[in-house]
C-alpha cells in the first residue's frame, strides 16, 4: 500500500504551488471521530439521506461539470502519519457565495490506515460509494469524473465545503473501521487549477488498475485477456508456468 505515498507528496506540492500563486485558501480542522461528526453537520447523512433527484431549477450550485473542469483522486496509505487527520482544505470560493454558478471541482481524498490492504483500496474506489447518502448533494453518473449538484434546500441549511468534507469523512470511516485518518482537499478556484491534479490522477489510476488486475487474478481471471482461465485452452500451460515460478521462488531463485 506504499505505492501511492509518493503522490501524497505530489498533492502537497500542488497545494504549495496554488498557495504561492495567491489563491484563497481556507483550512478547517474538524473532529474526526464518527461519534462526534454527525452532530456538527447541518444536513442528514447516511442511507437514503438524499433520495430524490436535484433538478436543474432546484440546483444552488453545480460542481465539476466537465465543461467547467473536474478531477477526483482517492489515495490510501498505511503510513497514517502522512495524513493530517480531520483537515479539510478549500482552495477557491465556497458554496454559499456561489449561487447559480457552475464551479470547477477538484476533490482529493487521502485515507490512512495501518491495516488497510489492496482489496480495501479497490472497494473504497468503487463508483457510487457516496451515492445518495448526503442530503442536498447529488453525484451525477459520469465515470472518471466527479460532477455533482447542491440543492437550494441544502444550501439554505448551511451546506458548504466544510460540511461536505465532514460528511465524506463520516461516510468513509463508518464504512471501513480500518480507516484511522482522513484528509480532504477541494479545489474550486479555476479549471487550470483543477487540471494540476490530472497528471497525479492518471498515475494513481494506473496503480489502481494494477491492483484491480491482481485482485482479479487471485480469483482466477486475467482481465487483460478476453477469456476467463477456466474456459481457456491454454490454462494448463499457465498452470505449469505458475508451478515453475512457485518452485523457483521456494528455492530463492526469483524474488
Amino acid at each position: 500500500m506504499s505505492a501511492f505515498d509518493i503522490y501524497i507528496k505530489s498533492i502537497n506540492d500542488v497545494l504549495e504551488e496554488l498557495k504561492n500563486s495567491g489563491r484563497r485558501i481556507n483550512v478547517f480542522n474538524v473532529p474526526s471521530s464518527c461519534s462526534e461528526l454527525p452532530r456538527t453537520i447541518p444536513v442528514n447523512i447516511g442511507g437514503n439521506a438524499n433520495p430524490g433527484i436535484i433538478l436543474r431549477q432546484d440546483t444552488y450550485v453545480e460542481l465539476g461539470n466537465p465543461e467547467a473542469g473536474s478531477s477526483a483522486i482517492m489515495i490510501s496509505t498505511n503510513e497514517t502519519g502522512l495524513i493530517n487527520d480531520g483537515r479539510i482544505t478549500l482552495i477557491g470560493p465556497d458554496i454559499p457565495e456561489s449561487a447559480d454558478k457552475s464551479l470547477p471541482f477538484g476533490q482529493v481524498i487521502l485515507i490512512g490506515g495501518a491495516s488497510l490492504d489492496d482489496k480495501e483500496h479497490e472497494t473504497l474506489q468503487q463508483p457510487g460509494f457516496v451515492g445518495d447518502k448526503i442530503e442536498g448533494y447529488m453525484i451525477r453518473s459520469l465515470p472518471q469524473n466527479i460532477w455533482s449538484r447542491i440543492s437550494k434546500d441544502g444550501a439554505a441549511k448551511g451546506f458548504n465545503f466544510e460540511c461536505l468534507g465532514k460528511a465524506l469523512i463520516y461516510l468513509y470511516k463508518s464504512e471501513n473501521p480500518k480507516i484511522e485518518s482522513m484528509e480532504i482537499i477541494f479545489i474550486t478556484s479555476a479549471k487550470d487549477d483543477v487540471k494540476l491534479l490530472d497528471n497525479i490522477s492518471e498515475q494513481v489510476r494506473k496503480i489502481s488498475k494494477e491492483i484491480t488486475k491482481e485482485n482479479w487474478k487471485i480469483k482466477g481471471y486475467d482481465i487483460d485477456c478476453e477469456l476467463d482461465c477456466s474456459s481457456c485452452g491454454d490454462k494448463s500451460v499457465c498452470d505449469d508456468i505458475r508451478d515453475v515460478l512457485k518452485s523457483r521462488k521456494k528455492k530463492g531463485l526469483v524474488k
Binding site: Q126, P127, K213, I223
Partner: peptide, 17 residues
C-alpha cells in the same frame, strides 16, 4: 476495452439507477 471497465460500468449503473 477491459473486463474491468465493463464490470465497473455494470456496478455503477446498478447502484446509480
Amino acid at each position: 476495452h477491459t473486463t474491468d471497465l465493463f464490470c465497473n460500468d455494470i456496478l455503477q449503473i446498478v447502484k446509480d439507477f
